[in-house]
Design a protein around this nucleic acid. Structure first.
Lengths: 127, 127
DNA sequence: CTGAATCCGTATCGATACTG
DNA sequence: CAGTATCGATACGGATTCAG
């Protein structure tokens, strides 16, 4: 199996499905936060700055559903729940890392370009 | 100047900025469609299945603003406009390709897991 | 601590009609 | 052909409240 050559233009190719899946605000960040081992709910919440409790829960549920993360609840009081990347989830970290590296290297240039484009007038006057 | 170590958890790290930028439905696909050379507006529209005129325009404008794509209008009748990845835009293709490859290899498994998780009842009966 | 449920503003996007 | 403008649905996500 496999070997089917998808071009990423067609509606339900894997690329689109992946984009639909990780193209929200938090999924990629949560996967990143789980990159170095299992983490508790509150640890993830603390690491992923700005995520609300609702969105974190929702994101983790979706990741679990898709087999990218496992959820382990310990029957204690107070409750402790740990999330961990599955093997599959771990394999996703590499391409994500490539993206992070690109961002670190090049986003500055992107923002510069954006700022330049946002100069309303010609702005050549100052040089 | 380089060397600053961002962790992808903090609010305005490059990773988040990139995600905010490419985390929409079309940007990644449009970059993909421009991967093998300059393309006309209508060519891109045809390649990126399902994109509306509005969203394609909007996406291309944003890419241009960010220095990832150049726009060249030829003063002809009828008009011809070509879009092409800049050098910077081209560098983004590599990590994006890594993501596409992951999708091709693993999205099937993800969808399987999702389908399994969506079985309402225990469904263990069939084994 | 973990998480479900609700309310609600807003950003996103698709469809459609119109223009040079 | 390559856009622009407008409208409306709805999905996304933040704040808050309640519960085991």
């Amino acid at each position: 199996m496999g070997g089917q050559q998808w071009n990423p233009y067609v509606r339900d190719c894997p690329t689109r499905q992946l984009l639909d899946r990780i193209g929200d605000r938090w999924t990629v960040l949560v996967i990143g936060a789980l990159g170095d081992g299992p983490r508790r709910f509150s640890e993830i919440a603390h690491r992923v700055d700005g995520v609300s409790q609702k969105m974190l829960t929702q994101t983790l549920r979706a990741l679990e559903r898709d087999g990218l993360v496992t959820r382990t609840a310990y029957p204690e009081v107070p409750p402790r729940v740990e999330y961990e990347l599955t093997e599959l989830g771990t394999t996703l970290r590499e391409p994500l890392k490539a993206l992070e590296d690109w961002a670190t290297a090049h986003m500055g240039g992107v923002l510069d370009s954006r700022r330049r484009a946002d100069q309303p007038a010609d702005a050549g006057s100052s040089r």
